[in-house]
């Protein structure tokens, strides 16, 4: 049965606000860290450490001409960029941050996230199709193909976790990791999930739907101003969701490592959750600075020939062990 528990209004406001704020700040964080990793400074002019670059960017984006190409399908063209941030915020809603912190607990939380991730691909697909531009078309085709393939084993890769925790509720999954993180028994699941997560959020090196060396900017080539901004923010929210899911599923969520708990469970939980999620955010940026984009067919065959079997074997072995232990 479908059951859920919604947090207090304060809870909702703070979590969604913080989620959005962090996502927006990621614009600056990413540019700054990419800069460091490629021997540059990154944005450092506006405000302390260039932190207000985000505001400057936002102002620029808001005041840019909001151009809708006359040859596009106007309704879909406007609709497409809205889908991504909305569904990603909805995915964010089921993530537990600390004991008592979270928008809602859903007994099918994990499935909910997958449903939202699946819907997000419509943003890419419709955006590219509605643009009526050949580069966009190629981008949206790539995006759709990539989403469909990588979602398959992204789902399979975390079934191991579900078997171990015996629940789809994210809060229960975190709770069941009190005595040991799932990254150890589910190491292959973790690897597959990381790769698939990067691919799902179109992060480098899996940004084939918009690889600028080949198809200019892919599905969002025709977008400018705030509509482009929505795509960008949506992608950053997806990245934040992915970075939050990592600790929730594999690294013990808000539980402190090595018993390093301090203060109240709430403070300690929020602290450790932020540290863990922050680590993965930076990891995603580092990956972008370091790795090479594979070719589309290589990406596909890698997915179906390596990742899928790996995740299936992982699932079978986990299931077998759990059944054996249960007698």
């Amino acid at each position: 049965m479908f059951s859920f528990e919604v947090g207090s209004l304060l809870n909702i406001a703070v979590v969604l606000g913080a989620g959005l704020a962090v996502s927006v700040m990621m614009i600056w964080v990413e540019r700054r860290f990419l800069g460091f990793w490629s021997d540059r400074l990154g944005p450092n002019r506006v405000g302390p450490f260039g932190i207000f670059q985000v505001i400057a960017d936002a102002i620029k984006m808001l005041f840019k001409e909001d151009w809708i190409p006359p040859f596009s399908d106007k309704f879909t063209f406007v609709l497409a960029p809205m889908i991504l941030p909305i569904v990603m915020l909805m995915a964010l809603a089921v993530i537990p941050f600390a004991p008592g912190v979270g928008v809602m607990d859903l007994n099918i939380g994990l499935l909910w996230i997958f449903a939202m991730a699946g819907l997000a691909s419509y943003s890419t697909m419709l955006g590219g199709l509605a643009s009526n531009n050949k580069f966009s078309l190629l981008g949206s085709l790539r995006g759709t193909g990539q989403m469909i393939s990588y979602e398959v084993f992204m789902g399979i890769s975390i079934l191991g976790v579900v078997i171990l925790a015996d629940s789809f509720t994210l809060r229960d999954i975190v709770e069941s990791q009190r005595d040991g993180w799932y990254v150890v028994p589910q190491f292959f699941g973790f690897i597959v999930f990381t790769v698939a997560g990067l691919a799902e959020s179109h992060r480098w090196p899996f940004d084939l739907p918009e690889s600028e060396a080949e198809i200019i900017s892919g599905y969002n080539t025709e977008y400018s101003g705030m509509k482009f901004g929505l795509f960008m923010i949506g992608e950053y929210i997806a990245m934040v969701v992915m970075a939050l899911l990592m600790p929730v599923l594999f690294f013990g969520g808000w539980h402190a490592p090595f018993g390093l708990e301090f203060g109240t469970p709430l403070i300690s939980g929020l602290f450790w959750m932020s540290v863990k999620a922050g680590f993965f955010l930076l990891f995603f940026i580092l990956v972008r600075a370091a790795l090479v984009r594979p070719r589309y067919d290589q990406l596909m065959s890698y997915g179906w020939l390596v990742m899928l079997p790996l995740s299936l074997i992982n699932l079978l072995v986990t299931g077998a062990i759990v059944l054996y232990q249960a007698g």
């Binding site: 490629s38 021997d39 480098w204 090196p205 690889s211 972008r288 600075a289 790795l291 594979p294």
Partner: peptide
């Protein structure tokens, strides 16, 4: 060349 293949950083190192 590296950027065209999808690797970001070498361009900046090369430019330095």
């Amino acid at each position: 060349w590296a950027v065209d293949l999808g690797q970001l950083s070498p361009l900046f190192y090369a430019f330095v």
